[in-house]
Amino acid sequence: MNLITKIKEKKEYSLAIILLIIPLIAAVVMMYPKHEEFVATGDITSVEELGVEGSVYFTYVHEGIIENLYEKFSVSLTSRNEIEFSSLDQHQYENYTAYYETSDKYKHNTIVNAVQNAEVKTDSQTIKISEKSQKIMEKSSDYIGDSFGLMIAIGLIEEWNDEDFSQNNQYIISGTGTIEYDGTVGSVGAIRHKLLSAEMNDVDIFFVPKDREYYADKNFSNQVEAKKVVKEEQLTVKVIPVANLDEALEYLRKLP
């Protein structure tokens, strides 16, 4: 008697095959390639967590890419906050993948730039740039991306000049933006969710890159997007666009 006849005769085998086909189909469907970007609100973290003795915070969001329905389902299930997905075409997907693969390089650059920019604004002669950069790099291993550059630089200036911009915790100061070798603050992604994260954490002052002039369509700039989000969501956080580190320091030193 061949196997098929045996299966036909045994009802339980036919039923088992039908039942086992269900998870098989589900698994195939869930594994079907689907490329999307996701972003969800995150939190604010003190620069102290990165080994910088400052009072300011940087804001992070949960973001990444999903490659199939299963990953989308897992990300949605494990995210505590509202999550936003947007489709990626093949070209965008390849760009994102390439970015995530080389994100450590960008992170290293912004950290070195932050340390160097902070170092020239302090009188201390004993700063070892590469040692400090290495220490921050190690402590930031849980974070991807380079958008905390500006806040690291501000924190380092507090540490080395013995300043306290929070004025004994009177202000909660956070922000986002990369920092370039010349102190310019560079544009970043996920401004909307970073602002919402800041609002959730009662941030008083939030720095964003003053980048309006670099965009043909101004709506794509962090500066315009931040303004729009504050208005739409009626946020209480005070958004301060800064073009470079000096502008941020000037603002902080003039705080009442």
Partner: peptide, 13 residues
């Protein structure tokens, strides 16, 4: 991932 999905559905069945 494939095994996880299969196993999860199988568990409910």
């Amino acid at each position: 991932q494939f095994i996880s999905v299969f196993y999860m559905i199988l568990y409910y069945l």
